[in-house]
């Protein structure tokens, strides 16, 4: 009988060497595709199960949040800056991208803690858990995107044909989210402070990033924005849809490369440390 042999000993990955890690991670992800999908389905269904309006909650939350900003804008509290498109379109589109990042990051950083009782009882791929948790942010992104399409019709706005390339252009944003999600989920597993800080920090970060307003041309905020990686990852896809042009290629490419590096490094760190998390969670 030639069955696969598994060994457990301290610092296992270190002994095997860094290069075999890539193969290991890749195989694990491929092998657990169905598990990832099942975990995603579980989270998604469970949220809307015990509620009367059920799935419609997914629509209601973004409508209300955008509605708030439209009201604030009409009241003149918000200085939006120079945009060439109807504000609701600009705002909802920006929010859709932002929420892909923020809900994705919050969900993934809580994924291990939430599944705590499960991961201390069953041995399964914890990477799948993190992956699956970001799935929900994709669903809510898609739904918000539908909202945007409705707004296009309502305002008679014709988006650029480049909109079809959006799935490609949001990859860096998604990798960036996942990468930090991996690291934060481990840290949150050990100290819950991470999750609490993150929830507060997200609101602050959203106002710091030009999502609901145009990029300021001068001042402190303008220089911060220049170094804000999320800004490029969101503003470029939005610009493509609304204008069909990219004015900040350089920023986008640098942020994109950074996202890929973040994702790979964080995934490796996660792989090296995930065996230690169950005993501390």
């Amino acid at each position: 009988m030639n069955k696969n042999i598994v060994t457990y000993e301290p610092n296992n990955s270190l002994k095997k060497g860094y290069f075999s890690i890539f193969g290991e991670i890749f195989n694990e992800l491929i092998k657990n595709r169905w598990l990832t999908y099942q975990l995603f389905k579980r989270d998604l269904f469970a949220i809307y199960k015990q509620s009367f309006i059920g799935f419609f909650w997914v629509f209601i939350i973004p409508i209300i949040s955008v509605g708030t900003f439209i009201v604030l804008n009409r009241a003149g509290i918000f200085i939006i800056g120079d945009i060439n498109v109807p504000y609701p379109i600009y705002a909802i589109l920006g929010l859709a991208f932002w929420q892909l990042f923020s809900t994705g990051l919050v969900a993934s950083s809580n994924s291990l803690v939430k599944a705590g009782p499960m991961i201390t009882k069953i041995n399964f791929s914890k990477k799948s858990l993190v992956f699956a948790s970001t799935g929900q942010s994709i669903v809510s992104f898609l739904i918000q995107f539908i909202l945007v399409l409705i707004l296009f019709i309502f305002y008679g706005f014709k988006p650029n044909i480049m909109i079809l390339l959006i799935p490609l252009f949001i990859i860096p944003l998604f990798l960036f989210t996942l990468g930090f999600g991996f690291i934060l989920s481990i840290l949150n597993g050990i100290m819950r402070d991470i999750g609490n800080i993150l929830a507060i920090l997200m609101t602050f970060l959203m106002f710091l990033t030009p999502i609901l307003y145009a990029k300021p041309t001068n001042g402190l905020l303008a220089s911060i924005t220049n170094y804000n990686p999320i800004y490029y990852l969101i503003s470029v896809p939005r610009e493509i849809i609304l204008m069909g042009t990219i004015s900040e290629w350089k920023g986008y490419i640098i942020s994109g490369i950074r996202s890929i590096i973040v994702f790979i490094v964080c995934l490796i760190i996660f792989h090296l440390t995930e065996t230690r998390i169950t005993e501390r969670i």
Binding site: K3, N4, T7, Y8, E9, N12, T120, K121, I122, T278
Partner: peptide, 18 residues
């Protein structure tokens, strides 16, 4: 530990099969 949920701090566990 036999299930691989916790890893040993010392020593070695070898498992053959699912």
């Amino acid at each position: 530990m036999l299930n691989g949920i916790f890893w040993p701090d010392k020593g070695k566990i070898t498992i053959r099969g699912k």
